[in-house]
Nucleic acid binder design. Structure first.
Lengths: 251, 251
DNA sequence: ATGGACGTTGCAGATATCGCAACAGACCAG
DNA sequence: CTGGTCTGTTGCGATATCTGCAACGTCCAT
């Protein structure tokens, strides 16, 4: 592993916390200012870092554009999107698509609710991993060892009284989810919001992504939302079929 | 500028084109495979690159998460958002917010149309710089020298018959836009879509961002859309006031 | 079996990187 | 106006770091 590159890349999460000047960067990297300067310059030339008018550095526009391309290249997103849109047509609620990658779960697509009340979320945003229905599905499918390690090193913030409180409870929930083949989040992230989710599987049978329907209490109760489960599962299965190459990409 | 870091960062745009294996990366970088391997490993440890099951590399999830944080840290976005939402409430059309940074213009926020017909765009996506109304405003404010250089090195794709055809036409359009203080895109990007845009200025009077309202022909004609101009300008001015610190962040 | 393609490792030599120290410019206070 | 401090910047020599090589392992197809 390359020391120079390692240091340079360490600057990015640092700047993600907010703008910083040369001295601050050098200090946090524990290197000489001149070293930090050279690294920042290189990052700058690639557009990953921007120097604002007050001379401080922050993350740059090209980083955002790169991430955008990264998402557009995910073929699962492309395949799933029309299905998500159709589901949204049918039920009117917000539909999400999420994937797991190296200890993170993130939304990679979203179709907004047609109802005026919308929940906050954003494509690219890391998911509340201990409570979100999609996260449960994605983690439940990990090999046992990895799952235990991950569950152990996670934090368990109590967003609400119904949030998953700790690792054992989480692992138990994951077992249940794996067995039943679907998952819910009933007010575990935001008091008044419920979700139902189903897994999307690749040709190898492993869970490649997960999708969910979310709606606030004020629009439908949790029970009403659960009646959508069959529809959600059918949609997920349709995507699975197409993604794994079994179905010849209908329509 | 650091050679090692430079090479490592060059891998990112390369992978943005699509997944690639070690050999391909090494070849495009013109380095030995072992060198490319070490660079990729370092990128991997930072989560910027992911190794998919077929061993090929593609951009990783952390890159997306980083970009997300980068956008959330843009204070102009935070200030502008409620105004954009309110404007959307009032007119119902899609509202965009865009910034310019180092030869790129990109959308950093968006409020979706309430009408069923939606235009395609995505936060983080680079804007069609030669035709978009927001791009015209942002570029029109650059210092003359920079503007000429930029206009010269741009491509002028003819998305439609009304696209800006070349540098001289573009520069002339920019002059007009700067003078009148607002801009339009009438079917220059997609035949049936029109936009009206207004600039947001910082304390120094320079254009810091631009916002626009877009709607397809089938919903409102270009003339009807133009009647929204005063409203758009008023909204942009309100944001300017708040951003430059003149207005004490109403409400 | 055999060949080729691809990823991976250890090593020795070359070179690019590092920290230093000195410089330059902005800013402020006396 | 002057002296001080703070910031970012540059040139340089020592050396730690990176590089390319060659050899190895593995997988797949012939």
């Amino acid at each position: 592993m390359s020391q120079t590159v390692d240091r340079a890349l360490s600057i990015l999460p640092l700047l993600a916390e907010g703008p910083a000047d040369l001295g601050q960067v050098a200090e946090r990297l524990a290197v000489h200012k001149s070293t930090a300067l050279r690294l920042l310059r290189t990052l700058h030339e690639h557009g990953l870092v921007y120097r604002q008018s007050d001379q401080r550095y922050r993350l740059g526009a090209r980083l955002i554009a790169l991430a955008q391309e990264a998402m557009e290249n995910l073929d699962i997103r492309e395949i799933a999107h029309p299905h998500l849109a159709r589901l949204n047509e049918q039920c009117g609620h917000t539909v999400h698509l999420a994937v797991y990658e190296e200890h993170e779960v993130l939304y990679i697509d979203k179709v907004e609710s047609r109802y005026p009340v919308r929940m906050y979320s954003r494509i690219g945003k890391p998911v509340a991993i201990t409570v979100a229905a999609v996260a449960k599905l994605l983690l439940a499918d990990l090999p046992e060892g990895e799952r235990r390690v991950l569950a152990d090193e996670l934090d368990y913030p109590m967003y609400t009284a119904r949030s998953t409180p700790n690792a054992p409870a989480f692992l138990k929930e994951l077992d249940k989810v794996r067995e039943q083949g679907w998952a819910t989040d009933l007010g575990g992230h935001e008091e008044s919001i419920n979700c139902v989710a189903a897994p999307i599987r690749g040709a190898d049978g492993k869970v490649a992504a997960a999708m969910s329907v979310s709606a606030p209490n004020v629009v439908v109760t949790a029970d009403e939302l659960l009646t959508l489960l069959p529809l959600v599962r059918r949609t997920a299965d349709a995507i699975s079929g197409e993604y794994s190459g079994r179905t010849p990409a209908t329509q």
